[in-house]
Amino acid sequence: MHETDMTKALIMTVRDWYVSQPDPPTIEAIHLVVGQFTCVEPAGLAFAFKAQTHKTFLEGVPLVIRETPLIAFCGPCDRPYHPQIGLQYTCPTCGGAMEDIRSGRELKIERIEYSLEGAKV
């Protein structure tokens, strides 16, 4: 299951960030962006994250996954469209092939939300 590998990469990245901080922060949430046109299933990722962070510094930290839709851009028509995954990928107006994907391929850690014990407000 690649969700397991992806989660390993995720945890390693967050750990690198965590140990590089001058004062140990409390991680409040991790925000991911997962495109619909990737091989990653958000539910699988959430499950693997829960399993792999059990009894670690990330136990209980919410994993917030934002899904991005598949959006392609048709050059000849000079406008974006929403291909229908599983059914049709060509431009609904001119029938041109899906060549330019503008959204839906994202697989990234967007940001880490954290707080500091002694932070003065």
């Binding site: 992806m6 990469a9 995720l10 990245t13 960030w17 922060p25 409040e28 991911l32 990653v40 697989l107 990234k108 850690i109 967007e110 940001r111 880490i112 939300e113 954290y114 707080s115 500091l116 932070a119 407000v121």
Partner: peptide, 12 residues
């Protein structure tokens, strides 16, 4: 107070 660390790092 909460802060945000923008990572924008690809999982792959």
């Amino acid at each position: 107070q909460t802060f945000n660390a923008a990572l924008e790092l690809n999982l792959l």
